[in-house]
Write a protein that binds this DNA or RNA. Structure first.
Lengths: 173, 173
DNA sequence: GATATTTGATATGGTCCATAACAATTATCA
DNA sequence: TGATAATTGTTATGGACCATATCAAATATC
């Protein structure tokens, strides 16, 4: 709906579009009023999500893992022996779109597709040793550089409350 | 990263991928364990955002307004006389991408571009009478069918706390 | 054993986001 | 003043993500 996301380059920083008020003897237009927008759930939710993803990508730059890829590795680690359909649908990823994603992870030797002996249509997914190692490092980066930032910003109790409310929305809205 | 969004058709409902456990005498594979995923800020944030947008679109079906379009109308109403660059950048929309969006709103007679007399490069944005009327109806729909749902789900106090925390993340993360 | 279903895959189109480049206009400043 | 730079809206274009239809191989169903 609203913002950019690359996190790297210029893009479009929202906030005060009228720049920084008065710097020198410039006329400088007044900053825009957000008004009711700042109370709109969808608006603030989307903005927060973009900021969080942006930060996630920065934290993961050394491992080159996107949020989606991280979630796949996490889920495969927790549920070894599942096939593509099961992993994809649990994450809300459509099977056709999951193919290229797995191609990527497999080409980087982070996970592997194994033909199931029970059902030779299925590809069982497992993490490779490298995949496990990378995921372990990713978890540490996320914990120390990403999630920790929430505690600094909101405090432990609020952080937990936030996650709880978002989960509730995700599941019951 | 994760889910779908159309809200209308089939798509891919996340949650329990192993369907509903045991219905009849089917073998039915076990439900997958989300594990640490359910504590990941980005994951739960994205999921909540998709659900909220989905619900927003349903509530606005009669007016055919997307969250982005709604935010534009809100901002133009609150800040009449601003040009495209100012409105777009405040919303984090890149100017090239704002053109088609305005073409749409203008073709529906919801807002209008007016050549500025001060700076003939600029297009001043204003809501048409129809735009004001539609926005008024949109606000009511959002308040009664969308935002009200948050109160039912979280309660007034929690709802305000949530908005506050998301704003903080959006601005300070 | 014929038919239907499931799985992974391909092809394809839509939407959103980002960059480069352009003409018209305005600002800068030598 | 006049040459140059910057700004505004716009177009063209490519990438990322999402969704649907369709397919062959394998399995399930009857």
């Amino acid at each position: 709906m609203t913002v950019s996301r690359t996190a790297e380059k210029s893009s479009e920083k929202p906030a005060d579009a009228g720049k920084g008020r008065k710097d020198a003897g410039e006329v400088q237009t007044e900053a825009l009023q957000l008004g009711e927008l700042s109370e709109q759930l969808g608006y603030v939710l989307k903005r927060a999500q973009l900021k969080v993803f942006e930060n996630f990508l920065r934290c993961m730059a050394s491992l080159q893992l996107t949020p989606a890829q991280f979630s796949v590795l996490l889920l495969v680690e927790k549920n070894p022996g599942r096939n593509q359909t099961e992993i994809a649908s649990t994450l809300g990823i459509l099977r056709p779109n999951f193919v290229a994603m797995l191609d990527n992870l497999e080409s980087r030797d982070l996970c592997a597709r194994i033909r199931s002996t029970n059902d030779r249509r299925s590809h069982i997914l497992v993490l490779t040793d490298k995949g496990k190692a990378v995921l372990a490092r990713a978890k540490k980066l996320v914990a120390t550089k990403h999630e920790a930032r929430l505690n600094d910003l909101l405090g432990q109790a609020n952080r937990e409350a936030l996650i709880g409310m978002l989960s509730k929305i995700a599941n019951e809205f």
